[in-house]
Structures are given as structure tokens and as C-alpha cells.
Simulated scan of single mutants.
Amino acid sequence: MTRTAYTGVPRWLYVLAALAALVIVLPLLAIVGRVNWGNFLPLVTSESAVTALGLSLRTSAASTVLCIVLGVPLALVLARGRFPLLGLLRSLVLLPLVLPPVVGGIALLYTFGRQGLLGGTLDVLGLQVAFSTTAVVLAQTFVALPFLVVSLEGALRTGGQKYEAVAATLGAPPGVVFRRVTLPLMLPGLASGAVLSFARSLGEFGATLTFAGSLQGVTRTLPLEIYLQRETDPDAAVALSLVLVAVAVAVVALAYRRPRSSARQASGERTTAAVPAGGALP
């Protein structure tokens, strides 16, 4: 008897899935319905809107780079490390996912503010972090870093350590194993995590407002501009919200542009090519 893969889904689950989709889609459609299309372009191309969008894109890109630089070694330690406080470290790393962003902003303020844990020392050195563009990048990194770490740690655990073990058996030192085997193995998870971190940074509001304030051209990102416009010009707030939604949809679509199975297969092919059969890695 030939066995086939089970792909059936109970019909009642489709009903619940449709309700879940409506919870997300209906508010977005409501935004589209409230847009003043006659003045849409003037609203989204005003000087304040363009400045805020440009600042958001620049700071989000900077925070994403910082997330990659810090997140790759952290995810590798969480996935491969073995030490007593590993569980506690993982819980602390994931804490920004559940903390209200404003709490994160307060924590950053009491760390890097003038009266903070490190702020006094930085002030003596002539470095003022709070209420600056650097503060925006730090706030975005604080809330976005766990997204990259979670994606990357999951990819590392799914891939296992068999390829690294083969490379080590062939005589490759740890540095070469990391560069030629581990990095290709984690690339799909790294790409998805980086894109999601960028999206989270782009939408950050609470921590940025608390730690960096809202100074036009310096710390006022697009979410802050939307919040301020909501009080004075609701049409502009709705138009800018639609722009932010469109950018977020494009970013998330980019992160999940191909099936995970294909990503894993591509990762396996790159890793296999990186480990020559019958010889040590160069």
C-alpha cells in the first residue's frame, strides 16, 4: 500500500483561521478606507513627513546592522553554548519581546542618561547619548535584537551540528568551521531575522519617545510624526500610517519570500559545497 502525506485540515479550523485573519486585516482596511486620496501625495510628501521617513529608514538600517553584529554571536552562544546560566541568559535576551517599549525606554534612560549608570562617565567624555539620533538607534536595537536572535537560534538548532562535526573531523580549526560551515548554515535565518529586526525598528515608538524624545530631524521618526499629526491633522496621520503599513508589508514579504524548506535546502547545498569530501578545509 502506498502511503501519502496527510495534508487535510478540519473545516472548522478554516473558520477560526478566517476570524484570526479578519482581526488583523480589518483594521488595515479601515485605514485604507479613511485615507483622503485627493490630498494623499501632498500629505505624505510634506517636509516633516519626508524628514521623519528618512530618519526612520536611516536609524532602522543602523540598528539592523548593530543587531547583526551583536545578535550573531549571541544566537550562536544560546544555540551551541553549555553553561549553568544559559537559561537565565535566554530569558533576559527575550525580555524586550514582552516588556512594554516605554519600560525599555526608561531602562535605557537610566543607563545612558546624564544621571544614568553610564551616562555620567559618557558626559565627562563629551558624549551625550540621550535625546540624540544615537539614542534612537539604541532604542530600536533594544527592541529589535531579540527578533534576530530568536530567528537565528531557531535556524541553528534546526540545522544541527553534523556539518560542523564533519568539518572538525577533517581537521578544520573552529574559526574556519564558523566561517565556512556555520555562517552558510545560518544565512536563511540571518536574512529573515535581519529583515524582521528592520521592520520592528521601523515601527518602534515607546522606547524612542521615552529615551530620545521627539526633535524634528534628530529623533522624530515616522511613528512619532504620526502620533503628533494625529492631534493636529488626522488626514496626515492616516496617510502616513498607510505609508508605514506599506513599507512594513514589503519588508515582511521580503523576509518570507520563499518557503522555509527551500531555504533549508539551499543552506544544505551551500554547506555541503563548503565541506570538501576527502580533505580538510583550507
Score class of each variant (00 low, 15 high):
137 V>E: 08
161 Q>D: 09
191 A>C: 15
114 R>Q: 12
198 F>Q: 08
127 L>D: 01
159 G>L: 00
133 T>C: 11
215 L>Q: 02
210 T>L: 14
222 L>R: 05
189 G>D: 14
117 L>E: 03
152 L>Y: 00
133 T>I: 05
153 E>P: 04
215 L>W: 01
193 G>I: 09
200 R>E: 06
121 T>D: 03
207 A>I: 09
212 A>V: 13
213 G>Q: 13
129 V>D: 03
151 S>A: 11
215 L>K: 11
184 P>E: 08
217 G>A: 12
140 Q>T: 03
162 K>M: 06
136 V>F: 02
152 L>K: 05
115 Q>N: 01
177 V>D: 02
145 L>H: 05
208 T>P: 06
201 S>L: 15
171 G>S: 05
179 R>G: 13
199 A>M: 11
185 L>H: 11
220 R>N: 00
201 S>A: 15
154 G>L: 06
158 T>K: 09
163 Y>F: 11
204 E>K: 13
127 L>M: 04
132 S>E: 05
144 A>K: 05
183 L>C: 02
124 V>A: 06
216 Q>R: 10
140 Q>S: 09
220 R>H: 04
110 Y>E: 03
158 T>R: 15
221 T>C: 00
145 L>T: 03
124 V>I: 07
189 G>L: 13
217 G>P: 07
134 T>D: 07
147 F>L: 14
162 K>N: 06
166 V>M: 13
141 T>S: 13
199 A>C: 12
120 G>N: 01
150 V>N: 09
137 V>T: 06
196 L>H: 07
190 L>D: 04
207 A>Q: 13
220 R>Y: 04
152 L>I: 02
144 A>G: 03
203 G>Y: 12
173 P>G: 02
216 Q>T: 04
171 G>P: 06
147 F>T: 03
166 V>A: 14
175 G>V: 07
142 F>T: 03
204 E>H: 08
223 P>D: 00
118 L>F: 14
165 A>V: 05
118 L>H: 00
209 L>T: 02
167 A>H: 05
177 V>W: 09
168 A>E: 09
135 A>W: 04
113 G>F: 02
214 S>E: 07
136 V>E: 01
157 R>L: 15
216 Q>W: 07
200 R>H: 05
132 S>G: 00
189 G>T: 13
163 Y>S: 11
157 R>G: 04
149 V>R: 08
208 T>H: 12
133 T>N: 07
112 F>P: 00
197 S>D: 11
223 P>E: 09
153 E>S: 08
118 L>Y: 08
166 V>P: 00
185 L>D: 06
223 P>Y: 01
214 S>C: 07
191 A>L: 15
153 E>G: 02
219 T>P: 10
176 V>M: 15
130 A>N: 00
139 A>D: 01
169 T>V: 15
132 S>Q: 11
203 G>S: 15
213 G>W: 09
165 A>D: 14
131 F>L: 08
180 R>L: 14
157 R>K: 15
199 A>S: 14
150 V>C: 05
193 G>Y: 12
134 T>K: 04
209 L>Y: 08
187 L>S: 10
139 A>G: 08
144 A>C: 05
198 F>P: 11
164 E>H: 04
